[in-house]
Simulated scan of single mutants.
Amino acid sequence: MTAQGETPRIQINLDLSPELYETLDKLAQQISGDHAEVLVKAIALMEVAVEAKQKGKHFWIADENQNLETEVIGI
């Protein structure tokens, strides 16, 4: 039973390589969050990229002057 106003959660188990776990851990530290927060944000970012691709758009990383530097491909 969840407290009123809480979203129900589903627990999953993941088998990660030590290298991927280390990356997950470092990212959690960098955002001052936990592993779940990193995964939630990663999924949200992936969702944006996939939706853009489906609409024929491109996903880019821009510098501070809005110059396009890197296109994210392979999604």
Rank of each mutant, 00 (worst) to 15 (best):
M1R: 14
M1W: 11
T2Q: 07
T2E: 08
T2F: 07
T2V: 07
T2S: 08
A3P: 02
Q4C: 02
Q4Y: 13
Q4T: 05
Q4K: 10
G5P: 09
G5V: 07
G5D: 11
E6T: 03
E6N: 11
T7A: 13
P8A: 00
P8F: 01
R9I: 11
I10R: 15
I10H: 09
Q11A: 12
Q11M: 12
Q11E: 11
I12C: 08
I12P: 10
I12G: 13
I12T: 13
N13R: 12
L14K: 05
L14Q: 04
L14D: 00
L16Q: 05
L16G: 09
S17G: 10
P18T: 07
P18Q: 09
E19N: 05
E19L: 05
L20C: 03
L20Q: 06
L20K: 05
Y21V: 00
E22R: 14
T23W: 04
T23C: 02
L24A: 04
L24G: 06
D25C: 00
D25S: 03
K26R: 14
K26D: 15
L27I: 06
A28M: 00
A28E: 02
Q29A: 05
Q29I: 05
Q29W: 05
Q30T: 09
Q30C: 02
Q30D: 07
I31P: 11
I31M: 11
S32G: 10
S32C: 04
S32Q: 07
G33C: 14
G33A: 07
D34R: 06
D34Q: 04
D34L: 01
H35Q: 12
A36Y: 02
A36I: 08
E37W: 09
E37Y: 11
E37H: 15
V38P: 04
L39Q: 02
L39P: 01
L39S: 09
L39G: 04
V40R: 15
V40W: 01
V40K: 12
K41Q: 11
A42M: 12
A42F: 03
A42N: 08
L45S: 12
L45P: 02
L45Y: 09
M46Y: 15
E47F: 02
E47M: 03
E47D: 09
V48G: 07
V48Y: 14
V48C: 08
V48R: 15
V48L: 14
A49S: 15
A49E: 12
V50N: 07
V50D: 12
E51I: 00
E51L: 03
E51T: 01
A52H: 06
K53D: 08
K53A: 12
K53H: 10
K53S: 07
K53W: 08
Q54H: 08
Q54G: 02
K55H: 10
K55T: 08
G56T: 05
G56K: 05
K57W: 10
K57H: 15
H58D: 12
H58P: 04
H58G: 12
F59G: 04
F59V: 14
F59N: 06
I61F: 00
A62M: 13
D63C: 03
D63E: 01
D63Q: 04
E64S: 09
E64K: 11
E64M: 11
N65M: 14
N65P: 04
Q66L: 10
Q66C: 01
N67K: 07
N67G: 01
N67I: 05
L68Q: 15
L68E: 12
V72W: 03
V72I: 08
V72A: 06
I73V: 14
G74Y: 08
G74I: 07
G74L: 11
G74H: 00
G74V: 05
G74P: 09
I75L: 12
I75A: 04
